[in-house]
Amino acid sequence: MNVLNIVFRLLLALVVFPIIGGLIVGLDRKLTARLQGRYGPPILQPFYDVLKLFSKQRIIVNEFQVISVFIYLASSVLSLVLFTFQSDLLMIIFVMSIGAVFLVVGALSVKSAYSQVGAQRELMQMLSYEPLLILIIVGMYLMRGSFNIAVIMSQGRPLIEELPLLFLVMVIVLGIKMRKSPFDLSASEHAHQELVRGLLTDYSGLYLGLIDIAHWFDLMLLLGISTLFFYPHIVLGIIASLFLVILEIVIDNVTARLTVKWMLTYSYGLGLVLAAINIAVVYILR
């Protein structure tokens, strides 16, 4: 790997992907508005929001909040960087979980009922998606014999052919991770308020902006994983990932929020069963 290659990958992970992530969030707001018969904000809206947040006065409740935000951001950035460097997928998920844990820790460190309840729910969201994500990756491993993205990508036919159900599981994972209805329990996007702002209630200004940015990184990582399903047909993969996002937005607009127990039942009942069937089939056929 020469220097140019490294710079290119870093650029991709640190600049290009997050910008695309932001644009996808913008698209999300525009599309949601359209679905509701409104005109909607400009596509660049997330960037305006973040810039504005950066310029606001910094208000915090305690120091651990700030530390948590930075750890969240660092882990999200690192996981995307590791993704572009084609490292171990399971390691990437573990790195991403550092941030998720600290987001919860930061919210729990504030003695506000909204943050606290939001954080507790976020934990339940993590409990719902983490095993699913691990199983998706295990499915890829069973197909390719490696957790390494480089190896996963080195072989011929696209994974989707044999892992279609796991791709459907991705819908659940993405929904929970994007905090879209029916899984927007812990915090919600602007229009669908829940618990004031849920676990983000006591974040403002710079810190909220950083969380938004970290969120773009997370989103891109998940879309990257869903694109992997289609490799070597990258264009198809990108289209499928975009379709996935649009599907999430539609689901978001046509469903109502679930309770925690519903979410767990749903993600475990449906997600785990789908994953289990798919993995079992792959396992038996191999």
Partner: peptide
């Protein structure tokens, strides 16, 4: 509402004073 839709100006109705302008 769709008729006036202030979100096109980027206006969002938030519930949290800490995040409001």
């Amino acid at each position: 509402t769709p008729l006036y839709d202030v979100e096109r100006f980027g206006i969002v109705n938030v519930g949290d004073p800490k995040q409001a302008d």
